[in-house]
Design a protein around this nucleic acid. Structure first.
Length: 432
DNA sequence: TCTGGGGTCCTAGGACCC
DNA sequence: TCTGGGGTCCTAGGACCC
């Protein structure tokens, strides 16, 4: 059994805690560059402002509305998130922090009424830190997510679901017919794991609600849409397929990317930007105690500027050995950039990814042999002595290959006489 | 004129091997 | 003139999430 706790309009709610004057008016929080709306208060949603809507469109469409727009303050949201998570953890024995404003809590072994418990936790969060939340409970993570959606909708859109499911919704205690009704009232696209693309494809075959999805044949689901979607179907049917990840797994990839404030065309400017991104990424890497095996950089033009010629490319370079050194990572990122840069384009975005991450504790051993070290000369001397004593190629560079006489490029010597004087096997034998 | 950033997982297809 | 079957590994790109 799982409980999903999730803050309402998290960024906006976090801002309102410190600026109560924002309560009751339309508020949106903007992405970097003040580009588009990434959080909206209920009042802003009511005005028809969509998630991800560009800010300039908000201004065009709602001239007289006095929508309060704030640039994102991620430091504030992070600090608020940590408090939210620690209070929500009291709900049960295990916890997965799923995103900045959402957490799954595992309820295994818990006694008593989970609905009551969730209500208490929700109240505590509201009272202690002022964040309004919804909570959903279900036998699988997908159903807990769905329950959370129901809890929020029932609270804010009266009539969408039974009113008693508002704020805290426990699907596990619902009679089967009521559960079916809830699933029936939920569009397929609201289900966790069903995005726009799959929703449209499901629509084509007449699958429109969460109930329709739950009634699908798992084998058919897998054949057409793959295992990820099959898991979604089975989870809706009540079979847990997605485990709680209570220990945050180390990152497999670290990225630092930005859109530009204005189009960039010159290589020098891109070199600066990419160097900056690479530095930020290297910092993050060191924070998690990791090393990168590869560095990737990309640039692309703006797909929104229809009249511009479009260009999008990425390149990657392996590091000689895994590193978290800013200088090495910047050098590699700039080398990528120089391979992909083309003049004559309006670049809108660039970024750096660090790949093949591994822990700092893992080391590929290596002799400390810089080219000018005295040890290097001794190494060569030892190599020569060994080869003199045991025969040429006893020690050689790996790039020479191991094929020996079968190598393609060696000269032809089909008629050579034996090594009478320098090879034991070839020494002539005198017979009496 | 102005359209975010950071992730994960899966799959198809190419390269390669025996 | 004729050219199989089975497998692995890697990568790019799609899809999804918040």
């Amino acid at each position: 059994m799982y409980c999903l706790v999730d803050a309402n309009n998290f960024y906006v709610s976090a801002e309102r805690i410190f600026r109560p004057s924002l309560v009751g008016i339309p508020v949106i929080v903007l992405s970097n560059n003040d580009g588009c709306a990434i959080a909206r208060s209920d009042e802003a949603k009511a005005l028809g402002i969509k998630m991800g809507m560009p800010y300039f469109q908000v201004r065009q469409q709602l001239p007289g509305q006095h929508v309060m727009a704030l640039s994102a303050n991620f430091g504030l949201y992070g600090a608020m998130s940590a408090r939210l998570m620690s209070i929500a953890a009291g709900m049960g024995p295990s916890q997965e922090i799923y995103s900045i404003d959402e957490t799954f809590v595992g309820l295994e072994g818990m006694r008593g009424c989970m609905t009551t418990r969730a209500r208490a936790v929700r109240e505590r969060i509201l009272q202690w830190i002022g964040l309004p939340c919804g909570a959903g409970i279900g036998p699988t993570k997908t159903l807990a997510k769905l329950a959370n959606h129901v809890a929020k909708s029932a609270e804010r859109k009266p009539g969408s679901y039974p009113a008693e499911l508002a704020r805290v919704c426990n699907l596990a205690t619902l009679p089967a017919s009521d559960l079916d009704a809830v699933l029936q009232a939920t569009p397929a696209g609201e289900v966790w794991g069903i995005g726009r693309r799959i929703e449209a494809q499901l629509e084509e075959v007449g699958v429109r609600t969460a109930l329709d999805v739950a009634n699908m044949d798992a084998a058919v689901a897998r054949r057409r849409w793959g295992v990820t979607f099959e898991r979604t179907v089975r989870e809706l049917q009540g079979l847990s397929c997605i485990a709680l990840e209570d220990a945050p797994s180390p990152k497999k990839e670290i990225a630092s990317t930005r859109s530009f404030g204005q189009p960039v065309t010159k290589l020098v400017d891109l070199v600066e930007a990419v160097s900056e991104f690479a530095s930020r990424a290297a910092e993050k890497l060191r924070t998690q105690g990791g090393q990168a095996g590869q560095v990737m950089a990309f640039v692309h033009t703006s797909p929104f500027r229809r009249d511009d010629r479009q260009y999008s490319r990425a390149a990657r370079v392996p590091l000689r050995r895994p590193s978290s050194d800013t200088a090495e990572i910047v050098t590699a990122a700039v080398a990528c950039l120089e391979r992909i840069y083309k003049p004559g384009y309006n670049f809108a975005k660039a970024g750096v990814h660090l790949l093949d991450l591994q822990s700092q504790d893992v080391h590929q051993g290596e002799l400390p042999l810089d080219e000018d070290s005295p040890a290097r000369a001794r190494l060569m001397a030892a190599m020569d002595r060994i080869n003199q004593r045991y025969g040429r190629s006893t020690l050689s560079m790996a790039s020479v290959g191991l094929a020996g006489d079968r190598r393609e490029w060696t000269m032809r010597q089909e008629f050579r006489t034996p090594d009478y004087m320098t090879r034991w096997a070839d020494i002539p034998v005198a017979r009496a």
